[in-house]
Design a binder for these strands. Sequence first.
DNA 1: CTGAAAGCGCTAACAC
DNA 2: GTGTTAGCGCTTTCAG
Lengths: 348, 348
Amino acid sequence: MPEVPCPVTRPPREPRRPLTLRDVSEASGVSEMTVSRVLRGRGEVSEATRERVMAAARQLGYVPNRIAGGLASARVNLVAVIVPSLANMVFPEVLTAATEVLEGAGLQPVVGVTGYDPDREERVLYDMLAWRPAGVILAGLEHGAATREMLRAAGVPVVEIMDVDGEAVDSVVGISHRRAGRQMAAAILDAGYRRIAFLGTMMPFDHRARKRMEGFEAVLAAAGVALAAREFYSGGSALAKGREMTQAVMARRADLDFLYYSNDMIGAGGLLWCLGQGFDIPDRLGLAGFNGLELIDGLPRRLATMDACRREIGREAARIVVAGRAAAGSRIELTPVLAPGDTIRGLR
Amino acid sequence: MPEVPCPVTRPPREPRRPLTLRDVSEASGVSEMTVSRVLRGRGEVSEATRERVMAAARQLGYVPNRIAGGLASARVNLVAVIVPSLANMVFPEVLTAATEVLEGAGLQPVVGVTGYDPDREERVLYDMLAWRPAGVILAGLEHGAATREMLRAAGVPVVEIMDVDGEAVDSVVGISHRRAGRQMAAAILDAGYRRIAFLGTMMPFDHRARKRMEGFEAVLAAAGVALAAREFYSGGSALAKGREMTQAVMARRADLDFLYYSNDMIGAGGLLWCLGQGFDIPDRLGLAGFNGLELIDGLPRRLATMDACRREIGREAARIVVAGRAAAGSRIELTPVLAPGDTIRGLR
DNA sequence: CTGAAAGCGCTAACAC
DNA sequence: GTGTTAGCGCTTTCAG
């Protein structure tokens, strides 16, 4: 990556007109083309020239204009990354991992947030494609028709992340949430629990949570077990909601012996409430969440969970974008591992 | 904001060459100039023409090229937002609030992450300024000389956020962390605690945490009280670290009667550990954190804390950028409120 | 209300 | 190694 000629001294005068390559060219007595080469670190340039150019650029405080550069070269170092939310730690983590890989390749993520709203997703994508990014990473496989069409026509790598249960436009990196739900159900049944409740978010467009629940119920049904209760929430502090939902569901069905939460944060809230009630965990009552958040390490007991492979997803998605056309159509299904923690009996 | 002419039907053929205004112009029989007007929603255009153009654009799946547009108009709808980290929920929250305001004004945030590293901050800023953003929002007042110089020379609104203790390049929106530390110290002393420890992060560039500690110690010193212990951590799950640090510090100084944490997450970990130990909180031992995270609502006891005004900071910073030159040099100091929770005695 | 011409600041593709 | 020429796809400006 080219060196950054940041200004260390104040330029002689505050020029009203923005600086251009020409200014650096004149100040250094080198042609614009060569200045451009130096600043991009491309092409063979003699060391002497290079230094004169860098000195002039630094001196003036010149910052190259990528808008012009992008137009001229039809190459842009931006990568669109579109996630449903930043409030759920899962996405900042995916983003952080993706950013590390992208930066290493000289690419710059541009983050868009949809709020789990397909219309906003469409708008956000449209706005980002207007910058002709070098790639698109976006969460989920469910998109509006127009969104899919834009992705298809974008002509750059598109990576749909988090989920693999569905049809991808181009590449996918994620886990099977249906399978994750099934796996958790099997473990719970194995451990002998039978009066099981599901506690989750009330978001029509959180397809991954829905799929986990579907997989979960399917396995229960196959074993002749029906969900004994369901509880949904929306908004507010997830930890507090976990607490409230748990209290509510236990008030309705005191005989429940297992609570499956759609994420670790509400699970943690539920766990704290249950411990406060003095419930015998995991014998009388088992609990499990989803995501494998770091947070779990600090709870009085480790909540059973399943790793959503967030960092790996971010990293692999970024790699696919970096690889360009070579990696088109990749499909990477990661395998979440059940971490039984201390809240499922007999599974230590 | 202009309507989004997203494609609802597949274009007739997959064109290899990217679409341009000219394609829409030809397909609609309207000049490029008028197509441009329609797509941007600028200038007077007859309804009939408008509809023909929109239909053609939608049909083709045309997405305007903002690179070319930005170059021609020297106007860009991007706003650089530079934060130290996404792992600390504080920043995603600021970002979310800022995004709401920016989107409402047709601006698009571009997020950069520095990892609390001044050199990375400089690089990130350089990369962002290369896109000639309409404004810059960045955390903190402490920057390298080159970074300050770039900010000064950017020629667009610059808003430094989170902190007001220091000299700003242009506008500032934040709170005084020194004052926050002082205020907390005063409250703790008022409540009669005297053997006080500080537990925090070991980050040389987390200036805000440092300032809180400085303010905190200053008030203690003025009252003739010295910090009885300090404990620092880095990396790992903050909740777990809070637990470990608390255990460690209490092992060293069992007579401590107050623990002041540099953030709520480690404070929550400490609180959970203390409750597990059966400590008499808040009488025998008081606790306080910082930030006012939502998370607190779900803990067995409400941790005392002080709101960092995160959403308000994001919102106001974005407003200043939206206002443009009119708001240059603004200074907004917000006042964090002490939320005594259940962990400081006599302050319910 | 609509159109034609002239760049925006840079880089690809060639010369030298 | 270095310089020259011609655009990239839009929008500004000015005519009609």
